[in-house]
Design a protein around this nucleic acid. Sequence first.
DNA 1: TTAGTATCGGATAATTTTGTCCATTATTAT
DNA 2: ATAATAATGGACAAAATTATCCGATACTAA
Lengths: 144, 144
Amino acid sequence: MFSKACEYGIRAVVFIASQSVQSRKVSLKEVAKEIDSPESYTSKILQKLVKSEVILSEKGPTGGFSIDYQKLNSIKLERVVVAIDGDQIFKGCGLGLKQCNANMPCPLHDKFKEVRDKLQNLLETTTVLELAEKIEYGLGFLKR
Amino acid sequence: MFSKACEYGIRAVVFIASQSVQSRKVSLKEVAKEIDSPESYTSKILQKLVKSEVILSEKGPTGGFSIDYQKLNSIKLERVVVAIDGDQIFKGCGLGLKQCNANMPCPLHDKFKEVRDKLQNLLETTTVLELAEKIEYGLGFLKR
DNA sequence: TTAGTATCGGATAATTTTGTCCATTATTAT
DNA sequence: ATAATAATGGACAAAATTATCCGATACTAA
């Protein structure tokens, strides 16, 4: 469904958010440990998220990754996914046709659109904060 | 969503079905042309589908690929997808956790499960024949 | 029996994704 | 200023996916 990079990305952002709620910055090392991901690869993914302004980063000691407290409850999962995987997953044709729409549909178009739309809706209505809170309350986990 | 191989696979099966309805066998060349896919790669995918008994193949002149007329209306899309991509796409965790279930869920578990289930339902209730008929009647297309 | 046709299977190559390593830059505390 | 810390950026490597090629095999028709 999502690429591995995207899976790591979401998990990382949720963890960072769960710590930002408590005004804590986290290092790359912590992130990789908490979400059980390869450190260097995770670094690349976080850089992408920094560039697309989903997360903040500060260098030097006391530095680390965080999410702007103001933005915390407005960041939707959709932004994370699009930053890493693009929007093909919830916009593209299920059978890989470049041109597939109501006028010129693939045979799966109508049914598949329902799934896509449901996914898109999930991504556009789910906030990172909401997921982070599950982590805080021990109602959700980011590894295993 | 689906791998490229799986996209080609579905398109190929739907085309083969649309011809089997008319008792026509089709060659690899025809398939690749009709679904606009690389011929040799498509060959590998068709071999997988033969081994998993989704389609039939006959060698020699007058040979080609086809689908058993008896089975035509009972073959679900799910079989094609599982034969090529496995079931991770509608069974696996959205965030890539190996262990993710109601007891030990990822923070996206509940919401994501709805999407997965919808996809699984789509794949389990949609028949290849149903899609093939759209092609026959010009209500669906397999390239562009 | 032979020529022709079409799938099968194995080897190999190209591309993309995933993952690693290291020097550089920025920042902080001493 | 200096040393320590943490992200950054670039090059590189491994693995998986996508794609190609070709000889072998099976079958048909004449």
